[in-house]
Structures are given as C-alpha cells and as structure tokens.
C-alpha cells in the first residue's frame, strides 16, 4: 500500500509546482535572451553569431543532464523499487530529447558561418548525436512497455547502460582532437567574458525551470494515464466476474 501513498503525496506537491515552473521558466528564459541579445557585443572573431551561445549551451547541458537524471532514477528504481522512479525517468525522456535536438540544430547553424561547415564527424558532435538516438530509442522502448503493461525494468537497464555516453560527450573534446572547442566553463573557471557569461547563466536558469515544469507535467500525465487505465481494467474485470456468476446460477 505504500506504493499508493507516495504518488498521492507527490501529486499534491506537483499540482502546486507545475504551472509556476512552466510559466516562470518561459518568462525567465525570455528575459535572459532579451538581456543577452541587447547587452552582448559581437565576439572578437565570431561576430553576432555568439548570440547562439545563449540557447546552444543550455540545450547541451539539459540534454546531458536529462540522461544523468534518467540514469539516477533507473538506479533508484532497480535498487529501491521506488514507485515514482520509473515514472520520473520516463518523464525526463521527451524534454531531454528535445533539448539534445535543439543543441544539435543550433550548433549546426552556428558551425556554418564560423567553422565553414554544417556538420563534421568529430568526437563531440558524434557523441551528442548518439545521445539523441539513445533518447529516441528509450522513448520508443518505454512507450512499448507501458502499452503492453510490462515491467519497466528493461528500460531502467537501458537508462543505466546509456549513461556511459554522458561522460564520453563531456570528455570528447579533451581525449580527441576535435573541431569543437574545449569546455569554456569548467569548475570555478570561465573563459567567457562576463558580458556574455551573466546572461548565459540566466538563460541556463530559465531553461532549467522550464525543463522542471515539463518533467512535472509529464509525470502527472503518466500517473493519470496509469490510474485511469487501472481503474477501467478493474471495472471490466468486475463486470466479467458478475456475468460469470450470473451464468453459474
């Protein structure tokens, strides 16, 4: 019965948080982008295209952070069998995939005028594309498992195994000579001028709030779907039982 208590308490909290996170995330993101757009001067070499950084970098971080969250939730699901773990892992997949996609598309659009090419098969770009494919595979798998009503344990194992790609993306620019530049922001260090850095961090905050709101909304949708389905199935069973009882009599 403790399995029911947790989702109920979660729903009480989620009802409070979903809308503020969604709306607040959109507002903070919009404000951060306007700030960056108006205050950022052209970069020494990249000119105006540096503005793409304000969406490219948050998208990249959230794409990678999303799979990290899936991996942690999968671990919690496999070890502690927490009833919300599988739902939260599933809820992160779609926003994670969208941000990985936005990272790739904005990066490609940025690469054309700066590097002189839309795409190269270097370590960073290739491993990021692999991440997008992992998301798509994960979404297809979890949807199929939910449709058949099977256990989500296979998806959790997929989530854990796929996590090996996240440190590879992170380290790709260090391990291999790549066309993509090395990390600009590392622990306590930044090679980004403050005039770009502060709007950038505000944009990261805005996109993260939005991500959180989407995850809450997805969790509520998945929970509601599961509950509605379980209730309908119980009713169908009861009706069937009543019919067989009548037939026996």
């Amino acid at each position: 019965m403790h399995g029911y208590a947790n989702p109920a308490r979660f729903l009480k909290i989620a009802r409070w948080f979903t809308m503020p996170l969604l709306v607040g995330g959109l507002l903070v993101t919009a404000a951060a982008l306007v700030w960056g757009w108006t205050s950022a001067p052209p970069d020494r070499l990249m000119g105006d295209s540096v503005k793409i950084l304000f969406i490219h970098l948050p998208a990249a971080w959230l794409g990678m952070g999303g799979w990290t969250a899936i991996a942690i939730a999968s671990l919690v699901e496999l070890v502690w069998r927490h009833p919300l773990a599988a739902i939260s892992a599933r809820a992160v997949a779609v926003p994670g995939a969208v941000f990985a996609f936005l990272c790739l598309v904005t990066g490609s659009i940025w690469g054309r005028p700066t590097w002189g090419t839309w795409w190269v098969w270097d370590g960073r770009l290739t491993s990021m594309l692999v991440l997008l494919f992992l998301y798509l595979g994960y979404i297809a798998l979890t949807n199929a498992l939910a449709r058949e009503g099977s256990s989500s344990r296979i998806a959790a194992i997929f989530g854990l195994v796929g996590a090996i790609n996240v440190p590879i993306i992170n380290r790709s620019v260090v391990w291999w000579n790549s066309l993509h530049q090395p990390a600009s922001i590392t622990m306590g260090n930044s090679a980004i001028d403050p005039v770009y850095l502060y709007p950038l961090l505000a944009s990261v905050l805005g996109f993260s709030l939005l991500f959180g709101g989407v995850v809450f909304a997805r969790m509520r949708a998945i929970l509601a779907d599961a509950q509605a389905e379980a209730r309908l199935r119980r009713k169908a069973q009861k009706a069937e039982l009543a019919q067989t009882a009548r037939g026996d009599a």
Binding site: D43, R44, T114, W115, G116, Q181, S184, A191, D193
Partner: peptide, 28 residues
C-alpha cells in the same frame, strides 16, 4: 575549416599582446 577556441571575448578587447596570443595558442 576554421576552429574556434574556448574563449569568448568582445570585439573591444581585441589587440591582445603576443604573450596572450601564445597562451591562447597553447590553450587551444
């Protein structure tokens, strides 16, 4: 193909010294 380094610097801060350029070469 042009390769950018990890530094983002406004145009106004151009005109770096040779020493800075060297450091940037090493960083890249």
């Amino acid at each position: 193909l042009a390769k950018h380094d990890e530094n983002y610097v406004p145009k106004e801060l151009e005109g770096m010294s040779q020493e800075q350029v060297r450091r940037q070469v090493e960083a890249t």
